[in-house]
């Protein structure tokens, strides 16, 4: 009988928000195989996270609570996971879709000679292994891959295995997992860290997101986006170029290498609609594009579009939202 191991990553004592989607993927795999899953929670001051994990339906919950794991440290977490795999055989590992989780997955795949799939959308068992689909080429294509060598290392894609959170009462008594972290030496050392400035709501969970791209031209115009976001009770975000240029903090980036959002309303201003960006917002219910190039690819993926310069459109949009009064017939005219 195979077993599934789910890595419970923590941030400042809380489980990674993607944890419940990992659990949902593990349950899905379990339904096809009859395998049970267990959770290994790692971090520092993990008590609350461990308690939450006991409500996941896992048949075993263990934890590594160590001060050295306070800041994300992929090499050390990979070491812990490798130790877990040494002591017991797992058929599959389900990793968080975070920067840490993806790196630990790649490290373990290399170390264990195992098959790994990043951003798993679907999974299905066949006679020769586990068949998964995953986006490639920035989301422009989907690859079907069979993982053969186990443990199969899976990083579920954000949004592909939806979950409503803890489903059961605590099912197990958690126990500590012994490690050699006290005196282990590593090739990488964390020297210091500095938090990025926070602003607005948690992007991944925001209901309304107002994002700006390279077309905003600089940091200053983001002020207008913030005001619009506030008026819509939402939060501001960006495509990659504004983050690379330092107009906004990298944490505001939406897309393949940023956050995946699934908002009710996603407003994209001065964003062309590259697949690497759209893959991070395309499951939003309503997508509004403001762009002065009528041929911008984003108009093929938006539900509503305004062809125009944001310098003309946004101040009027903000005024209209603030006034809150319908101004004449809403031009729901042409369809592309």
């Amino acid at each position: 009988m195979g077993r599934i191991l789910v890595l419970g990553e923590t941030h400042a004592g809380d489980l990674d928000p993607g944890f419940w989607e990992q659990v949902s993927a593990a349950v899905h795999l379990g339904e096809q195989t009859g395998w049970a899953f267990e959770v290994l929670v790692v971090g520092s001051s993990t008590e609350d996270a461990v308690t939450a994990a006991t409500r996941s339906g896992a048949d075993r919950v263990r934890s590594v609570d160590h001060p050295r794991l306070e800041s994300p440290w992929p090499e050390a977490v990979a070491e812990v996971m490798a130790a877990a795999c040494d002591r017991r055989t797992y058929a599959a590992l389900v990793m968080p879709r975070s920067l840490l989780g993806a790196e630990v997955a790649a490290r373990l795949a290399a170390r264990l000679g195992a098959g790994m799939a990043m951003d798993v959308m679907t999974l299905r068992l066949d006679g020769e292994g586990l068949v998964v689909t995953r986006p490639v080429f920035g989301g422009a294509a989907t690859a079907t891959i069979r993982l053969t060598a186990s443990p199969w290392i899976l990083v579920p894609r954000t949004g592909s295995f939806p979950s409503t959170g803890p489903t059961t009462d605590p099912t197990v008594e958690p126990s500590p997992f012994a490690t050699r972290l006290d005196d282990a030496s590593f090739g990488t050392t964390i020297v210091s860290q500095e938090y990025q400035e926070t602003e607005g709501q948690d992007l991944a969970r925001a209901r309304v997101v107002v994002a700006g791209g390279r077309g905003m031209g600089g940091p200053e115009p983001f002020r207008l986006l913030r005001e619009i976001a506030t008026r819509l009770d939402g939060t501001v975000a960006a495509s990659r170029p504004p983050c690379d240029a330092g107009w906004v903090e990298p944490r505001l980036q939406v897309g393949l290498t940023g956050t995946t959002v699934a908002a009710d309303l996603y407003v994209a201003v001065g964003i062309s609609g590259a697949s690497q960006h759209m893959t991070g917002c395309s499951s939003s219910r309503v997508i509004v594009a403001v762009n002065n190039d009528p041929n911008a690819p984003i108009f093929r993926m938006a539900s509503h579009g305004v062809v125009g310069d944001w310098q003309d459109v946004l101040p009027a949009l903000l005024d209209g939202l603030s006034a809150g009064l319908p101004s004449g017939p809403a031009g729901t005219g042409r369809r592309t």
Binding site: V306, G308, L321, A323, G324, S327, G328, P329
Partner: peptide
């Protein structure tokens, strides 16, 4: 013009 489109967009969102 862009301003009118912006106001109409506001109406649609409202």
């Amino acid at each position: 013009d862009g301003a009118e489109a912006g106001r109409r967009l506001a109406s649609v969102l409202i």
